[in-house]
Amino acid sequence: MRKPMAAIASRAWRGVRAIYPLLLLLAAWELVARAGLVRPLFLPPVSVVLERLFVTAADGELWPPLLTSLYRSAAGLVLAAVVGVPIGFLAVRNRFVAWFVDPLVAFGSPAPKLALIPVFTLWFGIDNLSKIMLVALTTVFPFMLSAAAGARTVALNQIWAARAMGSSETTLLWRIVLRAALPSLMSGLRVAVPTALLTTFTAEMVAGGGLGGALILAQRYFESATVYAYLLVMLICGYLFDVELLRLRRRVLRWYEG
């Protein structure tokens, strides 16, 4: 019975060693704040921040803005995927689409789409739609690029083999190309999701609503603990989504290999 205990202990120790700088920083933060070296306005102690986090979660203050933000990000991503992935595929097969889309993507990818926040707020109002459209515009590029890159990996003989077996064009497209493009699409997703969150939060900080808007309000009312708490929430969100995406990617690719 002692062996499993030793194994758990050594794994725990390795885990601690892996994140020790973070623990160190957190400890330093708590000490500095508690010792009164910095004004509590600027740096409330970690314990206070965590307490605030739990309070907002428990009494329901956190959830409406958070869920709004998540909804906006998700809707924008879905829209971008539905538009971007087919265009990406089409660009590989159709020369006119490629001619039209390539320069737009070359220009649009490095362009700061966030600069369009005022424009979209004008067009779609300050509520959900403007954020959704902005997220969609920003994330359509990684979807297009990764779809096109993935479609290009389809081996020509795979298509010929399918054609020989009498597949119609749509079946052809979906079964072979989508499957071949899956790894690339997963990479694109890994870029698109954090971008969506970033865009949503930033747009909200400018134009209001959601977690970003709540963050700005907290800052304006000098509720520093809330500011830190919401930052922590954003961090956790981003981290959880990344972890989930990695798991999804592994599962999808395992099926892809087989």
Binding site: F201, L231, L235, C237
Partner: peptide
């Protein structure tokens, strides 16, 4: 790497523009 690595990885998921309100506080 052991010291800075975890710090870098931790900040990876944070949208940096969210730091702006914090910096305004400071």
């Amino acid at each position: 790497d052991g010291f800075f690595g975890p710090i870098v990885k931790a900040t990876y998921s944070l949208p940096k523009s969210a730091l702006v309100p914090l910096f305004v506080l400071w």
